[in-house]
Design a protein around this nucleic acid. Structure first.
Lengths: 204, 204
DNA sequence: GTTTTTTACTAAACAGTGTTTAGTATATTT
DNA sequence: AAATATACTAAACACTGTTTAGTAAAAAAC
């Protein structure tokens, strides 16, 4: 009965095909302009076929959202070898900002858009978000334990750091900095300064 | 020739009627569900009529966005009498967070949504945003001048404070904190702690 | 006061969207 | 070879923002 397995494989292949097309279209033209019909056209199937593999548009973008988190996780993991927790924290923050600036559409999907959150609501735990947040929490805990930063509730500290980083990049991604007639370079430089300033204020 | 003036008045009345209806529907059911057709139905005119008074949906929501900024400005102005600039800064931050938690839909429209920004792009200056930012900038400048907070580039400092505040509330507004199984009250309390922590780290 | 012009409005259509339904070939099982 | 299950799609449904063409009523011109 290898047929069943082949069918299962083909089903996965089709899902992957849809996700690949959706991702490519999404990164090229954004969420709103990536319609089910345009994905269907791209993969040369009828729009209705897509609904045989995904419940709705949100589910498709939830998978893309998961992939984006995997990418961020990879970036974070690069800093695993760093021993000093404050150095590690700094590296994480800078990577986070860099990730957002280099992948603004991914960042939007991960942390700003409402779209793929209906899926998360179903599962009732946001495993990717939690995972990233816990990585930050662990690093900050180490900083506190080794007295590298001022004492404080670790959770609140992590919330503070994440909020700062998110605020910085999301104001940029959604064009609230862009309006202040400044070049991208200057914005990027300013962000770097802001991160340094913010982190130096946490230091003991 | 008072007819012309009456006509002008009637035109404004109609604009106000549309805005009032749109605002009410928007605050009740959100942006996406507030369609031109639903506004038209509410004011008992045809959908096409709305386009005689507004260029497009974005223009309508840009006016709502302006009204929301007027509301925030009012909240800020309450703190004008505060003499000590650090106390003032603290009050502003807390008001900002409070405003966002009490008017999440307004906040979304003002600082997160892409929708009404096409209008801003046309005018090429974001007068409301700039005004609010400059209020913050002035307060922070006073803090630096009076050596209430650690020295630093005033612009970067303002960017840092705004980013932190925005990050905090926008993660909440877009449901990235809500998923962590915490009650609204606890979230609100945590935010308060985070603001205190953040500002205390700026202190000299 | 009648005719012309302008104004205010709308029905209907256009071009999209996400999604569902009913039906058809093909592949698999009996 | 017949019955069943699978994979797929054409067409429709119920929406969306927006535009066009046409119609009454109000204002201006004669």
């Amino acid at each position: 009965m290898a047929i069943k397995e082949r069918k299962e494989r083909e089903k996965q292949d089709m899902r992957n095909l849809i996700i690949e097309s959706a991702t490519q279209l999404f990164l090229k033209q954004g969420y709103d302009k990536t319609s089910i019909r345009s994905i269907a056209e791209d993969i040369e199937y009828s729009p209705a076929t897509i609904y045989l593999y995904f419940k709705d548009k949100d589910e498709i973008f939830y998978v893309i959202h998961e992939n984006a988190f995997a990418l961020l996780e990879k970036v974070f993991r690069k800093h695993d070898p760093i021993q000093d927790p404050f150095e590690k924290l700094t590296a994480i923050c800078k990577s986070y900002v860099e990730f957002a600036l280099q992948n603004p559409d991914y960042y939007d999907l991960m942390f700003i858009m409402r779209a793929p959150l209906s899926q998360i609501a179903c599962e009732d735990t946001w495993k990717e978000g939690d995972s990233a947040f816990e990585y930050l929490l662990r690093t900050i805990s180490a900083c506190v334990d080794e007295k590298k930063i001022k004492p404080g509730d670790k959770f609140v500290l992590a919330m503070t750091v994440w909020s700062f980083g998110h605020g910085l990049v999301s104001l940029y991604v959604r064009g609230r900095f862009g309006v202040m007639k400044m070049s991208e370079e200057i914005i990027s430089e300013m962000m770097d300064h802001a991160v340094d300033l913010f982190l130096s204020n946490l230091k003991t």
